[in-house]
Structures are given as C-alpha cells and as structure tokens.
Nucleic acid binder design. Structure first.
Lengths: 210, 210
DNA sequence: GTATGTTTGAAACAGATGTTTGAATTATTA
DNA sequence: TAATAATTCAAACATCTGTTTCAAACATAC
C-alpha cells in the first residue's frame, strides 16, 4: 500500500514538473519535495532518473495503446471492409488520447512533449523505448491513412504524416503558453477541446492538399 | 581579431551542441572544449550561459529578420496594394530561411530545433526574448496571413499559424532522422528542398481548411 | 512475539555545473 | 618603446546534481 502510494505520488509529481520545466531542468529533489517523499525513494523504486522518465511515459503509453487498439478492433468488427476517412482516423486517435489524459488538463501536454522529445533527441533513450513499444500501432495507423489517401505517393504520405504529428506535438505540448497568449491578445479563453477542434480540420486538409 | 574569433568559435560550437542535446544538457565545458577556447571565455564575452543562448539565437534571427523585411518591402514597392496568397507568404519565409542557413545543410535543422526548444523548454526566457525582440516581424507576417485568409476568425487563424509553425519546426528539426527512415523504408533519398516542397502545400492547405 | 523482508529516513558521496578570481599574456595606443 | 587596455588561462569557488549508504521504522509471516 505505502509502496504503491509512494510510487504514484512520485509519478504524479514528476509528470507535472516535467511538463512545466522539461526533463533535465527538473531535479529529483524538486520531484520528491513536491511528492512529499524521501529523496532516495526515486532510486529505490525506479532505479534511476532515466527509468523514472520512461515510467512516466509508460503510464500514458500502455493505456493509450490498448484503448486505440480495442476501439479500432471494435470498429472493424462492426463495419468490416469499411474505409475510414482521414477525419475518422484522427477522431479515433483524438478520442483515445482524450480518454487517457482525462481528469488532468496537463496530461495531454506532457504526453505530447514526451512524444516530441522522443523524436527530436537524437541519441536519447526515449526514442528507442518509443519505437519498440509503438511499432505495431504505428504501422496499423499508417495503413489506415494509406487507404484513406490512395492518391498520395508513399514518400509524400510519409512526410505529410509527420507534418501532422509535428503540428500536433508542437502546439499541444506548449498549449499553456499559447493559450496564455490567446487570452492576452484576444481576450478569449480556449479550452483544450476547442484547440483540438481547430487542429483536426487543419491536419485533415493538410494531408489532402492539392 | 582574437576576440571576434573567440566569440565566433563559441557561437559555432554552441549552435551545434544546443541543437544536438538541448540547452540544459549542454555544459559550458563541452562548448568551450569543442570551440577550443578557455572555459572562462563564455562568461567574459557573453556574461552568462543564458546570454549565450540568446546570442546564438540572435545570430540567426538578426539576418533572417532583415532579409525578410527587405524582400517584403521590395515587393510592396513593386506591387503596391497587391494581396499576397498564403503560398506567396510561405515562399517569402522559406526563401529568407534558405538564404540565412545556406552554406551549411544542417543550419536549417539547427535553426528549427532551436525554435522548437525555445518554445517548450526552460522557464521561457527565450520565448519572451523572441516575443519582445521580433514582435514587429511577427505582426507583419500575421497581418499578411490575415489578408490572405479573411474568412478566418482571428483566434482560429492564430492557432492555425502555430500549427504551421509546429509542422515545420518538428519535421525540419529532425530531418536527418526522418530522412534516414525514408531511405530505409522507401529506398529513396530526399533532399532538403524536396522536403520543403512537400511541406509548403501541406501548410497552405491546412490554413485554408474548410 | 519473534524473526524476516520491505520500505523509509537523514546523511554523505562523488562528480558536474555556472561563475569568479587574479595573475599571465597579448593587443592597442600614445 | 613604454604605458595601458583587452583578453586568455589555470585554478578555485560555491552550489547543485543523481546516487549510495546504512540504520531506523514498518509490515508480514511463522
């Protein structure tokens, strides 16, 4: 009980702090202070800071993976041979993402930031962790997109997929900052759902360009 | 002579290392070792690490700023009252970017990675630096985009602008890695120009969605 | 209740970090 | 050339980093 509680509190604190400050900028002392646990607890329960970062990621990755797999399986059972549109595919992904991150507004941002870092940090440990863990899901989604955009050349489709990923990862990971600017410049507040509502049509139109 | 040389060598080394590893992950000792200068030189010439980071940025943004200003001025003189299309605006930006980073293939990626890092790393002193220092250029480009997309609501235009920025920053900053995958999966090599050639139509279609 | 294994706690560890210092070197100028 | 200013350099600075240690507290099973 106490063990599980300590682990959860560390993950919760680390999640928020990583999203606010980044990984290297967040020290274990800051995390354990926020979590209200002893400094040594991180190394005792996770082994290292690196392993903690992966554990924070895994807590998103696992449920997200299962959720989207199940929902795609269900849809294919219910409507076999149906060809999903780009909008449908994006909705599947967005819904799984929303379900995984629901409850805490910041969880979508850190998920996206982790995603971006895994892609960008050249020799980082996160990308390999992600690639091995995500490979089958990536291929499945890519196959769906290919069916939805048969007119595209494979190479251009590949790039457009990553343009989509980039637009999503970049904006959602720094959503707090961007929303603050919106509030200052336009005197309007944007909910997370509204931003996603803006995002999906942009992505769909982009991948269908020309 | 020696002064200027030292300053340049520090900036060159820092530029590459920041892009490879991030800001917090790159130590002054690594930078000065790569630059072949003494450790104290950074604090002597720049004052602090924070100031060095801003100086690295300024070296890109300064020329970029001037180049795009001049080319827009020229165009407006030559074709007064003309309304630029989104494609035209993107071409202006892309050409200025290409000119600023020309000579070194990696500088575009470095520039984009720095931009991405600036947006979602650290406590945001870089974001503020960017916002205050290049506010007029941002406003000018935004005004051009507004004229090209009169049907858009200001808030949605703002978000779509950052979707574009994200798609560009994310993909161009990890271009080496993404290109390697293309080569492996499709047996095709992509030049930098080809990727930009894929990118611009995607962005233009995205911001004009629906 | 005693013994066993698990978890916490305060303290220390070894190393890296940005920064400062003051003397030595180099460049500039009169 | 002599005086002055600018720059380099090795060393030390104080602080922060992730990690380890080992005794104390706790839980669990016999």
């Amino acid at each position: 009980m106490a063990q599980n509680d300590t682990v959860t509190r560390i993950l919760d604190a680390a999640e928020v702090l990583f999203a606010e400050q980044g990984f290297a900028e967040t020290s274990l002392r800051t995390i354990t202070a926020k979590a209200g646990v002893n400094l040594a607890a991180v190394n005792y329960h996770f082994g290292s800071k690196k392993a903690l970062i992966q554990a924070v990621f895994a807590r998103f990755l696992g449920p997200f993976y299962k959720l989207i797999e199940v929902s795609l399986d269900n849809h294919e059972k219910q409507y076999p041979d149906s060809v999903l549109s780009i909008e449908d595919i994006l909705k599947f992904v967005a819904r799984a993402m929303a379900n995984v991150t629901e409850g805490d507004r910041n969880r979508l941002a850190i998920f996206m930031r982790l995603l971006g870092l895994a892609y960008n940090q050249g020799q980082g440990h996160l990308r390999k962790f992600l690639q091995t863990e995500y490979k089958t899901l990536y291929r499945r989604v890519m196959a769906l997109i290919a069916r939805a955009t048969p007119e595209l050349q494979p190479v251009e489709r590949y790039w457009r997929f990553h343009f989509m990923l980039g637009a999503a990862a970049f904006t959602l990971s720094s959503m707090e900052h961007l929303r603050a600017i919106v509030e200052h410049d336009f005197n309007t507040k944007c909910t997370e759902e509204e931003v996603v509502g803006y995002l999906l049509p942009f992505l769909a139109a982009g991948i269908r360009a020309k």
